[in-house]
Design a protein around this nucleic acid. Structure first.
Length: 354
DNA sequence: AACCCGGGGCG
DNA sequence: CGCCCAGGGTT
């Protein structure tokens, strides 16, 4: 079933986009400015890769501090590859989507072991590495090597949906958008990719569109119609189920907290937690991990991508014996643990700073 | 193709 | 509170 052609036959005006970028590019820690790029300076693929992985489903503002921390600790891909996975997970704590951190570490090791510490120079080869998919492979290849490839991310989904006044969810026309964008990629492919993302982040933003300043004028259909905020059309979304459970915060007489590791697969894989019950639709009776004077410290609510979690928080002072698999952490050491935000909320609810 | 996987910031 | 964000892996 062939889909309808896009309503806007005009290719993107790449020279106009690049001219806009030359004077309006965002200054980002991992970026080589268009002026420096023209002077012959090349981006470091390691830094570009690291930034792109961190930026997957994560805002620029949230990434900056993590990027500087990572590049300070591990300036080269060899350094990251040689680091223990635990330390990478610890440094990643708070960024979310923790599979990214595991793939990041595996990718660094693959680059060192299988490519002599040099990132492959093509989009296709990059995509065979862990954690590098269609978007990230194209982005690295364009930015670092000026491969003339379409770089299509969430920003571009929105910009192109408006450009074409696309009246179906982007998912249903993804390949047509990609082909149309591909036909517009100029010689300065890396700057073009970054320019389009900057456009989406500043001018063609989710809740505002400053069309008068946009270099995609006058070809943009939504701008011509004065309806940019109608796009992209959103698909129907499913309702979020609620799950409930208990979390148990145990301290010993010295105030140390009992922690353990989550299983290596599944939700929050390999991250640190306090013991707890299963999470299910109905709240069960708390099965305390051991006998003690348990106190109910209230409830913590946390919203994941696909469900809402309500955890009852319990605390007790216990004698540290008969517990397997975990460890006792001093309260001052909690900041350095690989604790996801959920369990930092739980500890805070129990009166502990982390 | 559909589903799973966090967290922060914004209005 | 709902929406959005420089998506990838799995099934």
């Amino acid at each position: 079933m062939p889909q309808l052609p896009l309503s806007n036959p005009h290719p993107i005006d790449a020279p106009a986009v690049l001219a806009w970028y030359d004077s309006h590019a965002r200054d980002l820690p991992w970026r080589v400015s268009p002026a420096d790029r023209k002077a012959g300076l090349r981006p470091d693929p390691y830094r570009v890769w690291l930034s792109e992985v961190m930026l997957q489903q994560t805002t620029v503002a949230a990434v900056k501090a993590y990027f500087l921390r990572f590049t300070g600790l591990w300036p080269r891909v060899e350094d990251l590859a040689a680091a223990p996975l635990d330390s990478v997970l610890r440094e990643w704590a708070g960024l979310g989507y923790y599979a990214r951190a595991r793939n990041l570490h595996a990718c660094a090791q693959a680059v060192v072991r299988e490519h002599g510490g040099v990132f492959p120079a093509s989009s296709a080869a990059l995509q065979s590495l862990p954690g590098i998919g269609a978007y990230t492979g194209a982005a690295i290849a364009a930015i670092c090597f000026d491969e003339p490839v379409a770089v299509l991310d969430g920003n571009l989904d929105r910009v192109l949906a408006r450009y074409h006044a696309l009246d179906v969810p982007v998912r249903e026309a993804k390949e047509q958008l990609r082909a149309a964008l591909q036909a517009s990629v100029p010689e300065r492919a890396g700057d073009f990719a970054q320019a389009m993302m900057d456009l989406g982040a500043t001018i063609c933003a989710p809740r505002s569109a400053t069309c008068l300043l946009c270099p995609l004028q006058p070809a943009c259909v939504a701008a011509r119609d004065g309806t940019p905020l109608l796009y992209p059309v959103k698909p129907e979304k499913a309702e979020k189920p609620v799950r409930k459970g208990h979390a148990f915060v145990m301290t010993d007489a010295a105030g140390d907290v009992y922690l353990q590791s989550r299983p290596p697969k599944g939700l929050l894989a390999g991250m640190t937690e306090v013991p707890g019950s299963d999470w299910s639709a109905e709240l069960g009776t708390p099965a305390y991990p051991r006998e003690a004077q348990w106190h109910h410290r209230g409830q913590v609510v946390h919203v994941f991508t696909h469900f809402r979690l309500e955890l009852e928080v319990w605390s007790a002072i216990v004698v540290p014996d008969g517990l397997d698999g975990g460890w006792w952490a001093e309260p001052e050491a909690l900041k350095g643990e690989a604790l996801p935000t959920l369990f930092r909320k739980v500890l805070a609810q129990a009166g502990l700073e982390s």
